[in-house]
Structure formats: C-alpha cells, structure tokens
Design a protein around this nucleic acid. Structure first.
Lengths: 266, 266
DNA sequence: TTTTGATAAG
DNA sequence: CTTATCAAAA
C-alpha cells in the first residue's frame, strides 16, 4: 500500500514538465526516504535524478519499497488535469499494475481520480559518487535558461569556463561566435539574484546545448540553479525543490576539439 | 427593412465564435420576437439554437419576418473587425441579397460598415419540444470547459452521471481512466460559482467529447452553464446570454456499450 | 492558417 | 488567480 499526499501539487506537475521531454519511461522508486527517480535520457547521454523527500509530503505511507514504471508523457497528461492549487495524492496497492492520481481542489468541491497502467522497465540504478568539484556556480535559474536559449541560436555547444572573476559561456557557429560573461555578484537585494562562484581550480568544459536547454525546463521549480563542474566529470545542473529535495541533471562534457577541426562530424 | 442596434457588440462576436466551428451555413431568422438561429452541425449530429430577444437590442426594427442565410465563417470574419466595445448594427433592406454590419466605436470616431452576400439555405426548422429532464446541473461554465478539455486528453467519450450527491464525469482511454466528481455546492460567495443539481431521477449518459468541446466555445458568453439530462433524450447544454436570450446545444447520447465490448470498432 | 499553450499584466 | 495578448506548433 502506497499513499503519498502532496499539498503543493503544482510541484509534481512542474517536475513532470521538466523531465518528460528528456525521459520517456522511468521507474519511480518509493521508500521510507521519499519518492525518487533516476533515469537516462532516451539517447543515453544525460541522466536525471529526482528526489522528493517523504518529509515534504503531508502524508507519506509506503509500507514497502516499490518501484513503479511509468510512461512520463502519459503521467504528465494526467497531471495536467490537476489544478495548480490542487492537492495531489499518489496511490498504489501492493501488487497492482496501476497507479492512481487523486486531485482535490482547494475547496474540496472537485475530486478527480486518474488511474494509469504501470509498465515493466528494467533500469540500472547507477550509484552516483559524491565528487569534489573544481567549481560550483550558483545563479538565477531564469538567467541560465536565457543564456542557454540565446547561445543555442548561434551554436550547438557551449563552453563553460570558470575563473575567479566569473563564469563565461561561449559558443561558435556558422554565423559567428558569442561569449557571455557573468561576474561573481553577491551584493544584490535578493539572495536568489546572486551569482556565486566557488572555485578551487579554473575549469573549462564543453557541452551540447540541446541537453542544457532540456535541463532548463526545470526552471519553474526554483529561482536558482547550481552548476557543478570538474574536468573529466559530468556536469551537475541542480534545481532545488523547496522543502522537498531536488532535481539533478548530469551531462558528460564533450572532448574539446582542436580549433582547426571545428565540426568534424559534418 | 431590418435594423437591429446592439450596444454590447461583443456579445454577437462571442456568439459567432461559439457556433462557427460547429455550423458553417445557417439562416438567421428575424421576427418581432428577436433574432434567432437554429441549425444542425455539418455532420448532422448536434443542434444549436440561438435566441437574442428584441428587448435586448437598443433599437429593434423588423418590418416583417426575414430569414437570412449566412456563411458563419464569413460573418465571423467581419465581426472580428468590430472592436469589443463597438456598437453593432445589423441592417438589411427588404428583398436585398446582402446584409450590412455597421460598427461604431464608443467615441464615434470610427464608423465601419461591412456588407456581406446572403445565401439561400433550405433549413428544416425543427420544433424542439419542451421536455422534463431527469436531472439539471448548473455549474460554472469555465469548470465545465476545463473538465471536457481534460477528459478529452484521456478518452473520446464522457459518461455524465448524476446522483443527489453530485455529478460525475468519467472517461476511459488507452493510457487509463479518469473520474471527476463535482459535489453539489450552493454555499459559495458568488452565485455563479455554485454547482446546483436538480435531480428527479439518477441518470447516466454517454457523449462524444469532441462535440462537448465544441459547445464549450460558448464559455465566454456566460459564467454558468446548464446541462439538462434525460435518458433517451439529447442533452441540452445551455449558456444564458445576459438580458438577451440563450445559446443551446443539443447532442444525442451514445448508446452505452457493454463493459466487455469496449472499443468494438478496433 | 488555425489552434493551443505560455507568459505577462491586472 | 484570472484574463488578454502573443508566440509556437499542428
């Protein structure tokens, strides 16, 4: 028996909007810890890890660990039927091959239940080692989304370079080049507008903008985003989910091309 | 000679937006009673009936009964040229094969007139008998529109079931099932937010969501919608038009399939 | 071109 | 939170 009651149902709606384009099918894992998901994107390049801690739910009952395979597009369709102020309850009976989403309007005048078939998905749950990062950038999530969108109109990849002075996002394409530099800035009115750079070592890594722009679908979940970089390691793009957990995206850097070998794949 | 002056011109704009997708050509009938229309949709499944009473017009001159065949898409195109605050006057000379729409801006600084060719349409004017309904549900029109839209993302048909406790909208599709229950609720701040159920007898009927979602195009005309149900009878979905009349949609129920004959057409 | 979703303003 | 305007997708 599983019954998870989430008062701020819009959180779950946003989570699905954030990952449904990246991952089509995935197992949601329920345990005493919380409601979590770990999955590779369909082309096995990026990894998404979600955690909604049990403490964030108004009611969290999970008699035993349960892994529920869901088609995320279908799940997103159903969650779209919930109002933004609805309370969402996720229910599943032991051994059942369905999951039920119940939506309660704030006034309790409208109660909806949506039942969805579960799927069998074999997933390798990767242990993600805690790593030391050369640099960690924390910045407004909307700013990061804007930069990734803007750069994607020029080129396909972004070079993220961190020095003590700031973080630079660069791209290069047929029509020209672009460089966006954000300097460290902690002296703003609101803390979520700050750009904070923790750097142990300068680092410069290249990533596919296509994936970065998928990650920024999570922007509505948090005002800030944290980008953790180390050479040779996948970047971690993390959006904290207030009071509940996080959604983290991992993406391996591209091996830097030589300057005169631009676009060898074309 | 026909001359109808409607101060709240936006009403006529909304009426045409509401029916132009359902009905392509129709006769508008003018009499001393008012300006009315009755037409089947193009696939002869649904019926729409409109009445704008003469008392609702600032000026209503209709020397003799007149039936004017119009292409509703063309009429809607012209009405889109009227501002939302414009006063609309409909004019036609006896024996003329055209109708003129005149738009006056509130300040009288802009006066437009659009002349449209009339068409010959043979229409059978059906007498619609007043019926006793097993159940009549009155609810916020936006809520009804939201429900029909949400359910259409899951299935093709909706089962509307009324009991004393409330009204249930259910559907079933490839990805799962959905049930939305609205309980009777008269204790709200604003009367237009109430859900009122008048029930003589429980009733449960099935309808094509495609048509329901056409009907909800009339949502901007009224804050509330009335759904009248009887077994064996077409449902009536009515939007009252303030001070003027109504727009009513009629749709025959589908014959309920047996449980084990789901999707016999596949 | 038309319909639907997103976003910004009230 | 609702509505109006605009942009993207079918």
């Amino acid at each position: 028996m599983l019954e998870l009651r989430l008062v701020q149902g819009s959180l779950l709606k946003k989570v699905l909007e954030a990952i449904k384009d990246l991952v089509t099918d995935a197992n949601f894992d329920c345990s005493a810890t919380g409601f979590s998901l770990q999955a590779m994107d369909s082309s096995h390049v990026a990894l998404v890890a979600l955690l909604l801690r049990s403490e964030g739910f108004e009611h969290y009952r999970c008699d035993r660990n349960l892994s529920m395979g869901m088609n995320l597009n279908n799940m997103a369709k159903m969650l779209k039927c919930a109002g933004n102020d609805d309370i969402i309850t996720i229910k599943a009976d032991d051994g059942s091959d369905t999951v039920t989403f119940m939506f309660e309007s704030p006034t309790q005048d409208k109660i909806s239940d949506f039942e969805m078939k579960l799927m069998d998905i074999d997933s390798e749950h990767l242990g993600i080692p805690e790593a030391e990062y050369h640099a960690i950038v924390r910045m407004p999530s909307a700013e990061f989304a804007r930069i990734c969108k803007d750069l994607a109109s020029i080129g396909d990849t972004v070079v993220i370079s961190v020095t003590k002075e700031g973080v630079k996002f660069s791209t290069r394409g047929d029509i020209g080049t672009a460089n966006i530099v954000l300097r460290q800035n902690t002296t703003v009115d609101k803390p979520e507008e700050a750009t904070i750079i923790e750097m142990n070592e300068p680092v410069s890594l290249t990533f596919a903008l296509r994936y970065m722009n998928s990650f920024t679908k999570a922007t509505p979940l948090s005002n800030t985003v944290t980008i953790s970089l180390s050479s040779e390691l996948p970047v971690v793009v993390e959006y904290k989910i207030a009071e509940m957990g996080y959604i983290r995206f991992y993406l391996a850097p591209k091996i830097e091309e030589d300057e005169d070998e631009t676009k060898p794949q074309v």
